[in-house]
Amino acid sequence: MTSGFGESMPQARTTDLLIEVLRDETLVYDLRRHRAHCLNRAAALVWKHCDGRTTVAATATILDEALRLSAGEALVRTGLDQLTRAHLLNGPPDIRGARSRYSRRAVLRALGLTGAAALLPPLVETVVSPVSAEAASCLTDAECRALIPPFCSGQPICGSPGSCCQPRGMRCRTGQC
């Protein structure tokens, strides 16, 4: 699977991000969306080369050499796709939207053959940072009803997974979160 010669990588987003580089991974905290992303080594390399100038083919070569793989562009495309979904790229859309041509199965096949299990997708793992109340202990329904907005801000309800205490008009009520 090859792309057109000279197709450039998109540009990485650089604003409103906190970045922590670990030994084999890169952590990125999105201050706009309050999501934390863990980029494995392959995704971190793809992201690093998202400068709007390096070509996809060149990035694939760099990845293969750095990770001792022969995954070609499939891994780069998958990385771009996952970075796009994580809102860590700025553009352009033609490269970001190419995921249908490079299925997860193709990448697994390419990586599996080379035994690079640590690089298997997902290349980017994401968690949503909780609002304070979501990380609190649960309340009973009666305890939720005793609260008054805005003090019901998503506390979980005991014994009712998926439910939380939230404002409804002037009152706090149990609802689906």
């Binding site: 670990l22 991974e25 863990c38 793992e125 968690v127 909780p130």
Partner: peptide, 11 residues
């Protein structure tokens, strides 16, 4: 991995 453990705790 260290990174995944860190985002698990952050969550």
């Amino acid at each position: 991995s260290l990174g995944r453990a860190e985002i698990e705790l952050l969550g």
